[in-house]
Design a protein around this nucleic acid. Structure first.
Lengths: 319, 319
DNA sequence: GGCGAGCCACAACGATCAGTTGTGCCCGCC
DNA sequence: GGCGGGCACAACTGATCGTTGTGGCTCGCC
């Protein structure tokens, strides 16, 4: 099916004449007539009744019209999503289940019609993200560089929001029945956080966390996928892991895992946003404002060093 | 833009290989490669990075994919909407602002995903609606035949719901400040209901209403459109009209019109549904059940004769 | 390092199709 | 009856689609 044919059909239905539709579309009347005929042959249905003064929708045509309209507008949206220069707001997230994606989804649901495209860089390296922002391939990235001094002049990083951590354990784990936990409760228990690249910001985060609270965090080892992780947790009586409270990890009900909030202090993973220092995409401002609507964390919240030292270009510069 | 190209793109993106996508789609790998190339040329953007083991989405490809998906599913929905035999539930209403359309819209919003097409027959004659139901062009019609005996054997009419009437007046009308009215209050006031075809069920309805309550209902004269009607009402100190309480007539705020409910007795226009007596569209049952959720009217409600005499095949036969 | 397997792109070809011009038909209107 | 507006059919041409054949590339294996 050809979308030009659909566009012709929609315009012809709206104008009631093939002739006018043809003029608008910059083709001959015969071409529009042919396009409609092709559409009708494809659908094995008559879309218009031809009259002396133009065309009129049949019942099938009436039923088809709204669908055709939505396809045509869908095509327009699809084109603007990638059209260089005038493309939709494009933001890089770590994964579609991450807290970042959840927050973006919340924003999008409360702002229907926003032209927002959520993508994930193939290379898991904040420097690549910075380069992509600098090059304009993406408008913003939810990644973190722990040393803001390494940012190019035309790229800035701002604090987006904090993601409080929760303990995720299986039913046989000794902490499984707790309603809340403090970091001190986690001592001596093995916390397994697979798939952390060495020297990444998560590696730094967990290193600091382990040092500050004397925890046993096992951040080495490969990650065989969420399924394996969840299966392991469900079966184990002594392994737990940490997840973001806003993450949307969906596990099958048969896993019977528990999420237990950690308080006194709350442990926050700071989510940053990398964006151009000058002329960011206009749609970004509303999203950054949206971060302010998220439930704030307690004053006592623990954060890694790079979120407690002053950040370059924080806050106002993006508004 | 060709929707087959979009379908190929979607499948290739999902499978990560043009080859596999080609096999599934029943064409050669080269054809899929070409389709993608055409798409890329059209969008002036690279959608895939080609690797030795297949293809991988670029950022632009990631941004484009969900849009392409929605277009492809839109095409499928559009086709099933008109495909004879397996088409969407198609219901004829008097107009998109009528109470019937509002109730259908309510239903559709509370049952997302329902394949529902709302159409309007061009010829405003219940006999045409009956014929269309009989022929299978539509699955049901919100029209009324005042004499059920005229229905063919394989077509039935059931009572759908009642639409209580309200008075619609401009600010200068003497009844404009009333909060509710009884039919007796309407005596001596001119009620203008344009566009009523002689001998139609509305003509009968208003004739009976005028006779039973001694009202002055002017149901003759052509209808020049809702805009003219609303303009006239807004300016006039002595003309009023009747509208259904569930209708969704949207008027510009500058019209400053008032809707005044009529009670003691409530005046109900009965909305009927014409549908096949045997094997109605399976989706109809849920809609008919939905009518039961509407707020019931008082026992004392006034109705025209054809709604107070026993109706053929009422109620259970449709369940 | 060489080689085969798997995958994608380019080339050439035939069939089909889209759009153009020219023309005829139909209907409503003067 | 003649005219005007609008749509459909016919014939033609250039573009396009899908096919077969082929080459280049990368990875993994011996």
């Amino acid at each position: 099916m050809d979308t030009e044919g659909l566009r012709s059909f929609v315009r012809a239905a709206e104008l009631g004449q093939l002739q006018q539709a043809a003029d608008e579309l910059g083709v001959t009347q015969q071409a529009v007539s042919k396009r409609i005929a092709v559409l009708e042959r494809e659908l094995e249905v008559r879309l218009f009744t031809r009259t002396a003064r133009g065309v009129e929708l049949t019942l099938d045509g009436q039923a088809f019209l709204p669908h055709a309209r939505s396809i045509v507008t869908g095509v327009e949206r699809a084109v603007t999503a990638v059209r260089p220069g005038s493309r939709a707001l494009r933001i890089d997230v770590l994964g579609l289940r991450s807290a970042q994606a959840v927050v973006l989804h919340d924003y999008w649901r409360s702002h229907p019609g926003t032209n927002l495209d959520v993508v994930t860089l193939k290379v898991n390296d904040p420097r690549v993200a910075v380069a992509a922002v600098e090059a304009g391939d993406i408008d913003a990235s939810f990644r973190t560089v722990t040393d803001p001094a390494t940012l190019p002049r035309d790229v800035q990083m701002i604090h987006a929001f904090d993601s409080p951590l929760e303990l995720l354990v299986g039913p046989r784990h000794p902490l499984a029945s707790a309603r809340t936990l403090t970091p001190l409760h986690l001592r001596k228990h093995r916390i397994w956080v697979p798939g952390i690249a060495p020297r990444s910001e998560w590696a730094e985060f967990y290193d600091q966390l382990a040092a500050d609270f004397d925890l046993r965090i096992d951040a080495a080892g490969p990650h065989f996928g969420d399924e394996v992780l969840l299966d392991t947790l469900a079966d184990s009586a002594d392994v737990a892991t940490l997840v973001g409270a806003r993450d949307r990890y969906i596990w099958p009900t048969n896993h019977d895992l528990r999420r237990i909030p950690i308080v006194n202090p709350t442990l926050a993973y700071p989510i940053s946003l990398i964006l151009p220092a000058t002329n960011p995409h206009p749609g970004l401002r509303a999203i950054i404002n949206h971060f302010g609507n998220l439930a704030p964390l307690p004053e006592t919240t623990w954060r890694p060093f790079w979120a407690t030292t002053p950040r370059r270009n924080d806050g106002d510069s993006a508004r």
